[in-house]
């Protein structure tokens, strides 16, 4: 059982790492290098994610750059990550709301509705920006909006309920300029109305481009769209 002594195990693990070109098995004890118990839970989580080979951080991502940036928190992520769930304090929520308001960029020619038929497919599709063991190839397909994951829209397909039902949205809400702006804002950066909401910032993050947003909005508002049947 010589094998089990920490030193032997360490050497074995090192050897493995050389052989496997760095990508593996750390049965290794890096334990002596850093003391997990001396860190706060937040520090340890950061350490495990960024320093301790917790994730594959050097894969290229669709938007340019590497997977590392998908783990780095921006101000909103930090403000809205509350242990145990729920919302941060009112002041923080106000700051999130204000930053969201600053972030919204409108199309040059104003908000217009696009092609609802394309919007229907985009609202359904969950394709796009996935990385790792299966990486979405954006040259092969359009990036979808995942709207049905969380919302019911037209009732010919089953939508989720993380968000409210949007069935009949255009028919019940109308298509006034204010209404279109509200919907655009919600898609672009919903934190302007619901700070720390679970809904992604589809415009701000670049997840959906201007055309995709226009087409999905057409699906929500066009009187011909099955959403408004």
């Amino acid at each position: 059982m010589l094998k089990k002594t920490p030193i032997a195990a360490g050497i074995a693990a090192l050897a493995t790492i050389f052989i496997a070109g760095g990508c593996a098995v750390a049965d290794a004890d890096k334990s002596n290098a850093v003391d997990y118990t001396a860190m706060t839970p937040e520090e340890l989580a950061e350490h495990l994610i960024f320093e301790a080979n917790g994730f594959v951080l050097d894969q290229e991502v669709q938007e340019g750059g590497t997977t590392r940036q998908r783990m780095v928190q921006d101000d909103l992520h930090k403000a809205c990550s509350v242990i145990g769930g729920g919302d941060p304090d009112q002041e923080t929520l106000e700051a999130v709301r204000a930053a969201a308001a600053e972030s919204i960029v409108y199309p040059e020619g104003g908000i217009e509705l696009g092609d609802w038929e394309r919007g229907r497919e985009l609202a359904w599709s969950g394709f796009g920006y996935r990385v790792g063991h299966k990486t979405d190839d954006h040259s092969a397909r359009d990036v979808g909006g995942n709207c049905y994951n969380c919302h019911q829209l037209a009732t010919d397909r089953t939508g989720g309920n993380l968000g409210p039902s949007l069935t009949g949205y255009g028919k019940t809400r109308g298509t006034s300029e204010a209404m279109l702006k509200y919907a655009y804002d919600m898609i672009y950066n919903p934190h302007v109305y619901f700070p720390c909401t679970n809904m992604p910032r589809f415009g701000h993050s670049g997840f959906l481009d201007e055309q995709a947003i226009a087409d999905i909005m057409a699906y929500m508002f066009d009187p011909e769209s099955p959403v408004n049947e």
Partner: peptide
């Protein structure tokens, strides 16, 4: 849409 987690890493 986060990176692949390493099953041998302490994060998982």
């Amino acid at each position: 849409r986060m990176p692949r987690i390493n099953p041998d890493g302490d994060a998982s």
